[in-house]
Nucleic acid binder design. Structure first.
Length: 928
RNA sequence: GGGCGAAUAGCUCAGCUGGUUAGAGCGCCUGCCUUACACGCAGGAUGUCGGGGGUUCGAGUCCCUCUUCGCCCACCA
C-alpha cells in the first residue's frame, strides 16, 4: 500500500491491495462494536445494529450472498460513519438441518453407507466434524468481499449458546400452551424421511392424469358414482366418498354405501361442503390419512384413517389398514402402484376416462421429491397468538417493509397463518427438549425441560427423550435475540444492541424467516426485532432465469473478485439494483458486467495520482482556513456541487431510523412521509459517481490545472479545495467501494495520522457562497459551445484558435477573469469586449445574451454556418411556439399553480431574447 | 382461482407526491495516446415512454382496458 506523499503505481491492482487493507481495518479494531459505548447501556453513542442472515454453514459464496452482504455492508459502513453511532454487524452461520444432513448423507452414500449404518450418535459426530472442517468457508469469502462484520461475535445456530436459546423458547411456548403435539396429515418427504412445514413443501406445476373411476352403489349395482382422482394409489386408503349436501344429484345416496373398487370394500357416502358440485362429477373420494383435506373431512365424519403408504412411499399396511394392501401391491413404490392399480381398474372396466391434468404438486424444497401427505404425530406451534403483534407492527409502522408492496403480502400471510410444524425426523439439529415418562399419566407423561432429564421429575422413573429434532427455522427465528445473548436478560449485547435496526434479505424467506423473527421478537422480548425490512431482488441471467448451479448460469463472486476486485463486484451490484428490483447479469460476459466497476476504481486511482503529483507534500490548509473571497468561481462551484451531492446521497439513503418517538411499545414508528424513504442505494451510488467523475474530474480538475502549476497563495486555495472535495468524495463512496477509497485515502495529505477512512466521518455540506458557483455555469456553457464548434468544423485538436466573447449583462467580468480557464478547457485564446471581428466565423449564443465568435479563416464554410444557425433557430422557434400556446391557454394560466406559470413566462422571455440574437445572426450570415 | 409487480434508447436500468427540449452506464459513430487516466478525453446519433381509451390547462407519471413477461398466495379431488 502506498503511504502519504509517495507516488502511486500507474495502475491500481486490487488483488495486491485488498487483503492488506482488510488487515489494516482488523488491526484498527474497526469492525468491533463496544457494548459499553451504547447509549442504551450508559454510553454516549446510539447503537445501530444489523444481524446477517446466516448462510448455511456448508454454503459456498454465490452471487446472491454477494448481493445480500454487499447491501448490508454498504448500510453498516454508512451508519458507522455517522456521528455518534456505534455500529454492529453480527455475522454467523446456520446449521441448516436438512441441507447439511443431505450433504453428509451423500458422502456416506458414496461410501456405500446410510446414516442408519452409522447410528444417530456417530452420524451427528461425523456431521459435526464435517462442519468443523469445511464450515465457515463462506465467512472467509465474505471477508474477501470486504464485509465489515464484527467477527468477534460470529454466531452459529447450533452453538451451545444458541442451543440454549432454542430450548428456552421451546419450553416457554410449551408452558404457555403454544406448542402442542398434533396428530394430523403433514407434508412428508419420503427421501429425506422427515416432515416438512407448509413453507418447505413448495408447489410446482406438473402435468399428470385425472382418472375417472366408477364406484358402484352397494344396493343398486347398476348405479355408478364416478369419482375423479389424480392419485389412484390412495384408493387403498379410501374410507368414504363425499358429495355436497346441496347437490340434488346425489342427495338420495347420502347415508348409503358404495363399493370401493380393487378392495371391494363398502364405504359410506357422506355429505360435506368440501365436495364442490362444480368440479368434475361433484363426487370426491376421501382418504383421510393421505390428504390434508380428506383428513378434515374424516375428522368431521369420524371416519377411520388407514395409513397405506409408509415413510418411504411404498404401499404397506402401516396402521388401521389391515387387509387394505393386497399382496400384489405390497412393497411397491407409490408410482409403480399407481400404474398397477390403473391397469387393474382398466381390466375390470371401472376406469371410465383418463384426462391429462395440470395441477400443482408439492415438492420437498431441499431435494425436490414429491411430498407425500402423511398422517403422523408432530410438534406444532400455535401461530395465531404470535401473529397478532407481528401484524400490528406493520400496521402501526413500528416495522416497515421495503419495497412497500411486500407489506400487503406479509399481512395477507399472517392473517391466514396456520400452525407451524416444527418437528423433523432428522438427526442433525436441536433435539426436541421433551421427555416422556411411561409411568406417569397425562399431563405428567410429557415433560418439556430446559435441562436434559435422566429421570422423571414427577415419579423418578425412567424417561426417554423425543427422537425428533426441531426445524432449522426454529433456531433461525431467534437469531436477532439469540446472537445478542438471549435468554440471558443481563447479556451486555442484548441490552446494548437490541432491538436491531435493518434486516436485509430476499423476499423468498419473508415467511420462513422474517415474519417468524418478528413474532419471536415480540413474544420473547416484547419488542420488534428491527424497524426496517429491506427486501432486495434476485440475481438473474440475461434470460431472467435465477442463477443456479443446475442451470450452470451462475457467476462465482470469487472469480469476479480475482479478476476485477471486490470493489468492482460491489459497485456493479449496488449501482445495478433498483429498490427491490432484480439484478440482471450476463454470466457469459463478466467483462461486460464488471468492467464498469473496475473502470470506476481506476478513475478514482488516476484522480488520486494527479492530486498527489500536483498537490505535493507540503501541508494543505484546511478549507475553513480559506477566506470565502479567495475562492475562485470554480472553487465555489465544486463546493456547491459537493453540497448538492451530499444532500442527494443523504436523501437517497434516507433516515437511519424512525425519527419520531411515539407512545407505542416499540418506542418509535415510521411517520408516513419517511416510511418508504431511503435505501435507494443505486441512486446514492449514481450521485456519488456523478460528483467525482463528471464534476470533480471532468471540470474542476481541468479548471485548476493552471493554478496548481503556478506557485503562490492561490495555489494553496486550489490545493485546499481540491483535497477537501476529493476527500469528501472518498467518504461518500467508501461504503460502496471500501478498498480503493481506503487505499487512496491513506495517501492523502489531509489525513490524520493513523486514521482509517472506514472510521472517518460522513461529509457534511460546507454551504459556500452560491454566487461564484452560478457564474461558473457560464464558463461551462462557453467551454461546451466552443468545443462543439471545434468538433463541427473539425478543428485539429491541438490547434489553438482565437475566440471573441461579446458579454451580455454582468458577464464581462466573468469572461475577463475566467478567460484563461475557458482558454485551457476549450483550447482557445479568448478576447473579451468590443465588437466581434468581421469575416467568416462560427457563432454561439449563450444564456444571458452573451455570444461567442470564433473566426476560423479557411475552416469556415459560410453556408454551413448559416445552416447551422438556421437549424438552431428553427428548433428554438418550435419550442417557443409550444410555450406560447401554453401561455395563451386561458385555462393553463388560471388553473396551473402561479409558480409554474411564472416559470414558463420567464422561460419564454429567455427564449425570445435568444431568438432575437439568432435571427440577427442568420440575417448577417445568410443575408444576401 | 385470488392478489401484486414490470413493460422507457440496441442492452441493463433511473425517472420520487403529474409541470423545462425524458436521463445514466454499456454499446454505436467521429476525432484525439492533450505529461492523472485509451479501464481514458472531446463531440455525436438513437426513444410513437407496450397497444387502445379516459381524467386534466398539462400524462412516461393518475384511472380503465387489452397484450406480454415475472412474482406471491391458494385444499379444487
Amino acid at each position: 500500500m502506498a503511504s502519504p506523499g509517495t507516488d502511486l503505481p500507474d495502475r491500481y491492482d486490487p488483488s495486491a491491495t485488498e487483503a492488506d487493507i482488510y488487515q489494516r481495518w482488523l488491526r484498527a479494531g474497526a469492525f468491533t462494536a463496544h457494548a459499553q459505548a451504547s447509549a442504551r447501556t450508559g454510553g454516549d453513542r446510539d447503537p445501530f445494529t444489523i444481524v446477517m442472515p446466516p448462510p448455511n454453514v456448508t454454503a459456498i459464496l454465490h452471487v446472491g450472498h454477494g448481493l445480500n452482504n454487499t447491501v448490508q455492508d454498504v448500510i453498516i459502513r454508512w451508519a458507522r460513519m455517522q456521528p455518534g453511532i456505534e455500529a454492529l454487524w453480527v455475522p454467523g452461520t446456520d446449521h441448516a438441518g436438512i441441507a447439511t444432513q443431505n450433504v453428509v448423507e451423500k458422502q456416506l452414500a458414496a461410501e456405500g453407507k446410510t446414516r442408519f449404518d452409522l447410528g444417530r450418535e456417530a452420524f451427528v459426530e461425523r456431521t459435526k466434524a464435517f462442519v468443523a472442517e469445511t464450515g465457515g468457508t463462506i465467512l472467509d469469502q465474505l471477508r474477501a468481499l470486504g464485509c465489515s462484520a464484527d467477527w468477534t461475535r460470529t454466531a452459529y445456530t447450533f452453538s451451545p449458546e444458541l442451543s440454549r436459546a432454542v430450548r428456552e423458547a421451546f419450553v416457554r411456548l410449551f408452558e404457555k400452551g403454544l406448542i402442542y403435539r398434533g396428530h394430523r396429515v403433514i407434508h412428508w418427504c419420503p427421501r429425506c424421511l422427515t416432515s416438512l412445514s407448509d413453507e418447505e413443501a413448495e408447489f410446482e406445476p406438473e402435468t399428470g392424469k385425472l382418472y375417472h373411476v366408477h364406484y358402484p352403489v352397494s344396493d343398486d349395482p347398476s348405479r355408478m358414482l364416478t369419482v375423479a382422482t389424480t392419485r389412484p394409489e390412495t384408493m387403498l386408503g379410501d374410507v368414504a366418498v363425499a358429495v355436497n349436501p346441496a347437490d340434488e344429484r346425489y342427495r338420495d345416496l347420502v347415508g348409503r354405501t358404495v363399493r370401493l373398487p380393487i378392495l371391494d370394500l363398502e364405504i359410506p357416502v357422506v355429505a360435506d361442503d368440501y365436495a364442490d358440485p362444480a368440479f368434475g362429477t361433484g363426487v370426491v373420494k376421501i382418504t383421510p390419512a393421505h390428504d390434508a383435506n380428506d383428513f378434515e373431512v374424516g375428522m368431521r365424519h369420524q371416519l377411520a384413517m388407514p395409513v397405506v403408504i409408509d415413510e418411504t412411499a411404498r404401499m404397506r399396511e402401516v396402521s388401521d389398514a389391515a387387509g387394505r394392501v393386497p399382496a400384489w401391491l405390497a412393497g411397491l413404490d407409490r408410482f409403480e402402484a399407481r400404474e398397477k392399480i390403473v391397469e387393474a381398474l382398466k381390466a375390470s372396466g371401472a376406469l371410465v376416462k383418463v384426462e391429462t391434468h395440470t395441477h400443482n404438486v408439492r415438492h420437498c424444497y431441499r431435494c425436490d421429491t414429491v411430498v407425500e401427505p402423511r398422517l403422523s404425530d408432530q410438534w406444532f406451534v400455535r401461530m395465531a397468538p404470535l401473529a397478532k403483534p407481528a401484524l400490528e407492527a406493520v400496521r402501526t409502522g413500528a416495522i416497515r417493509i421495503l419495497p412497500e408492496r411486500w407489506e400487503a403480502v406479509y399481512t395477507n400471510w399472517l392473517e391466514g397463518i396456520r400452525d407451524w410444524n416444527i418437528s423433523r425426523q432428522l438427526w442433525w439439529g436441536h433435539r426436541v427438549p421433551v421427555w416422556y415418562c411411561d409411568r406417569c399419566a397425562a399431563p405428567h407423561d410429557v415433560i418439556a425441560s430446559r435441562e436434559d432429564l435422566t429421570q422423571c421429575p414427577h415419579c423418578g422413573g425412567p424417561v426417554r427423550q423425543d427422537e425428533d429434532v426441531l426445524d432449522t427455522w426454529f433456531s433461525s427465528w431467534l437469531w436477532p435475540i439469540s446472537t445478542l445473548g438471549w435468554p440471558d436478560e443481563q447479556a451486555p449485547d442484548l441490552a446494548a444492541f437490541y432491538p436491531t435496526d435493518v434486516l436485509v434479505t430476499a423476499p423468498e424467506i419473508l415467511f420462513f424467516w422474517v415474519a417468524r423473527m418478528i413474532m419471536a421478537g415480540y413474544e420473547f422480548r416484547g419488542r420488534a426485532p428491527f424497524h426496517t425490512v429491506l427486501l432486495h431482488g434476485t440475481v438473474r441471467d440475461t434470460e431472467h432465469r435465477k442463477m443456479s448451479k443446475s442451470l450452470g448460469n451462475g457467476i462465482d463472486p470469487m472469480d469476479v473478485i480475482r479478476l476485477y476486485g471486490a470493489d468492482a463486484l460491489r459497485w456493479t451490484l449496488v449501482s445495478g439494483m433498483g429498490l427491490g428490483a432484480d439484478v440482471i447479469l450476463d454470466p457469459r460476459d463478466l467483462e461486460k458486467s464488471f468492467a464498469t466497476g473496475r473502470n470506476f476504481a481506476t478513475k478514482l486511482w488516476n484522480i488520486a495520482r494527479f492530486l498527489l503529483s500536483n498537490v505535493g507534500n507540503e501541508p494543505v490548509p484546511p478549507l475553513d482556513s480559506i477566506a470565502p473571497e479567495r475562492l475562485t468561481r470554480a472553487d465555489a462551484w465544486i463546493l456547491a456541487r459537493l453540497d448538492a451531492a451530499i444532500a442527494e446521497c443523504n436523501t437517497a439513503l434516507g433516515p437511519l431510523r424512525p425519527t419520531t418517538p411515539v407512545n407505542a411499545p416499540d418506542g418509535h414508528a415510521w411517520r408516513p412521509e419517511e416510511r418508504y424513504a431511503g435505501m435507494r442505494l443505486n441512486e446514492y451510488a449514481e450521485t456519488a459517481r456523478r460528483f467525482v467523475w463528471s464534476e470533480l474530474a471532468d471540470w474542476y480538475l481541468e479548471a485548476i490545472k493552471g493554478r496548481l502549476a503556478e506557485p503562490g497563495a492561490d495555489r494553496d486555495v486550489a490545493r485546499a479545495v481540491l483535497v477537501h472535495a476529493f476527500d469528501a468524495a472518498l467518504r461518500l463512496l467508501h461504503p460502496i467501494v471500501p478498498y480503493i477509497t481506503e487505499a487512496i485515502w491513506q495517501t492523502l495529505p489531509s489525513r490524520p495520522e493513523g486514521a482509517v477512512l472506514m472510521l472517518a466521518s460522513w461529509p457534511t455540506p460546507t454551504r459556500t457562497a452560491q454566487r461564484g458557483a452560478d457564474e461558473f455555469e457560464l464558463v461551462r456553457e462557453a467551454v461546451s459551445a466552443l468545443r462543439q464548434i471545434r468538433a463541427e468544423y473539425a478543428v485539429p485538436p491541438g490547434k489553438l484558435v482565437d475566440a471573441h466573447a461579446v458579454a451580455g449583462d454582468g458577464a464581462a467580468r466573468v469572461f475577463a477573469e475566467e478567460g484563461s480557464v475557458i482558454g485551457r478547457l476549450a483550447r482557445v485564446a479568448l478576447r473579451v469586449g468590443g465588437a466581434a471581428p468581421a469575416g467568416a466565423a462560427a457563432h454561439a449564443i449563450l444564456s444571458g445574451a452573451s455570444e461567442l465568435v470564433v473566426p476560423l479563416a479557411g475552416l469556415i464554410d459560410v453556408e454551413k454556418e448559416c445552416a447551422r444557425q438556421k437549424a438552431e433557430l428553427a428548433n428554438l422557434e418550435k419550442q417557443i411556439t409550444a410555450l406560447e400556446g401554453r401561455l395563451a391557454n386561458e385555462k393553463f394560466v388560471s388553473k396551473a399553480p402561479a409558480a409554474v406559470v411564472e416559470a414558463e413566462r420567464e422561460k419564454l422571455r429567455d427564449w425570445a431574447a435568444r431568438r432575437t440574437q439568432l435571427q440577427e445572426k442568420v440575417r448577417s450570415l445568410c443575408g444576401a
